[in-house]
């Protein structure tokens, strides 16, 4: 059988934080962003000391072992869309496999991808979870090293296709937590869809590179402020972590 290769950072047979239910998660190696707040900075470079080459065939074997206990499979990263041919083929093979066909397929992405990438993934993907690091392009650039035009387009596009499972906001104090930014972000998301599931995650230092360890962690009060701002804009499905 044809088997597509992948540069892999890690695999977790059971995850409870990467989409609905219990999920098998593939973390691919390499990311198009270089976030200050990255919890897994070793997965940013195209290859790393812990990275290895695997394939859809090998992963399918591992998924079969965990299958009885799963809701589905998620590809995360690194950046999943950086190896979108692999994601497309993995999900297609999951759907074609009689034992695995019941599993749902999700992509966890930074949103920095062109429509043709989403078009390739849409036929085999049940849901997309997209990070919005900041609504303000300049803040976004300071946090990630790149602008957010593609990210905003992706969120709109995937929502239009009915496959946007959630938008995730990582609150980094001093960067994207000002009341004004929170209010504008809330308004933008609410204008898109007031029923949109929005997950607010507070920044924590764990795993972050030494040079960014000075960043303050998000306080419970800040997370609560953000939740209130989002609710005030009319968003009805806000989750805080």
């Amino acid at each position: 059988m044809r088997s597509t290769p992948v540069r892999l950072a890690d695999v977790i047979p059971f995850s409870w934080v990467d989409g609905p239910g219990n999920r098998f998660v593939v973390f691919v190696q390499g990311c198009s962003f270089d976030c200050l707040a990255c919890h897994n900075p070793e997965t940013i470079a195209p290859s790393g000391p812990a990275a290895r080459v695997s394939s859809t065939g090998e992963l399918l074997e591992q998924i079969r072992v965990a299958e009885p206990y799963l809701s589905g499979v998620t590809v995360s990263g690194g950046e999943a869309t950086g190896q979108w041919r692999f994601v497309r083929d993995l999900f297609a093979e999951v759907r074609a496999d009689p034992q695995l066909a019941r599993l749902t397929t999700y992509v966890d992405s930074n949103g920095h991808a062109l429509p043709r990438v989403w078009d390739a993934l849409l036929p085999v993907t049940d849901g997309f979870m997209i990070d919005l690091k900041a609504l303000d392009p300049e803040v976004h650039r300071r946090l990630t090293g790149r602008g957010n035009e593609l990210v905003l387009d992706s969120i709109r596009y995937l929502h239009g296709q009915g496959r946007l499972h959630e938008v995730r906001l990582l609150l980094v104090p001093g960067y994207n937590d000002s009341p004004d930014q929170l209010a504008r972000t809330a308004a933008w998301l609410a204008a898109l869809d007031p029923r949109l599931r929005v997950v607010v995650i507070g920044f924590r230092r764990h795993g972050v590179r030494p040079e960014h360890q000075h960043l303050p962690e998000a306080t419970p009060e800040l997370i609560e402020d953000a939740r209130r701002a989002l609710a005030a804009a009319g968003l009805g499905a806000v989750v805080t972590v």
């Binding site: 977790i12 995850s15 897994n40 940013i44 930074n110 924590r204 764990h206």
Partner: peptide, 13 residues
């Protein structure tokens, strides 16, 4: 723990 702490925070970046 189900997931390693490093990727516990949600977005894996």
């Amino acid at each position: 723990r189900i997931v390693a702490h490093e990727i516990d925070a949600g977005p894996a970046r």
